[in-house]
Amino acid sequence: MSEQLKESLSAVMDGEADEFEIRRVLNEAAGDPELRGVWERYHLVRSVMRGEGGTKGADRLSTRFWTQIDSGDETRAVGNSEPIDTGARAPRSNWMTWGQRVAGLAVAAGVAAAVVIGYRTDEAAKAPAAQVAVVEQAVPSDSIALFDDEMRRQSVPAALDLQRAHAYMLHHAHHVALNNRSVVPFVKVAAFESTK
């Protein structure tokens, strides 16, 4: 696996990759067991880091939670006091900084990375690479609009599919609101953009 590819993967993990990079990693991952292996190991490391359960980890997490508010979003001390960044729109990291983040109990890769590669379960990995259209909206660090080339050939960006997804979102908001018996969740319903 080339250094360049490692860097790309690192960027994807940090949610900092651009569309082309993501696509490249996607394509590579489709035919590269080593790359997938690396990805899986990182996922493992991450979930261990996140230490599902255990009050110690949880306490540190919750401290970090507020530290973020108190110290702004640039850098903050966590656990063993290694500075980490939020990954929001940080300068591009390299392989080493990602490694350091692991050491610093960083919570790395966000939704973006999970969308792009985490999607591939064993079964899905056997399928053609381009079965998913990702339309992320409005979450700055996770903004991806990704259509694989093959997908593009197959169909226009699926306006109908998007429409259906939004109808279901509204439906879900409604259902939650009604079942909550409080008007507060209706905020979501009322806020639902009429342009979608």
Partner: peptide, 17 residues
């Protein structure tokens, strides 16, 4: 009309088909 796998996100709400 057929449908494709899709991920659409708006704020905290995600729709995955």
């Amino acid at each position: 009309a057929g449908a494709k796998a899709l991920v659409s996100r708006s704020g905290a709400t995600v729709a995955v088909s």
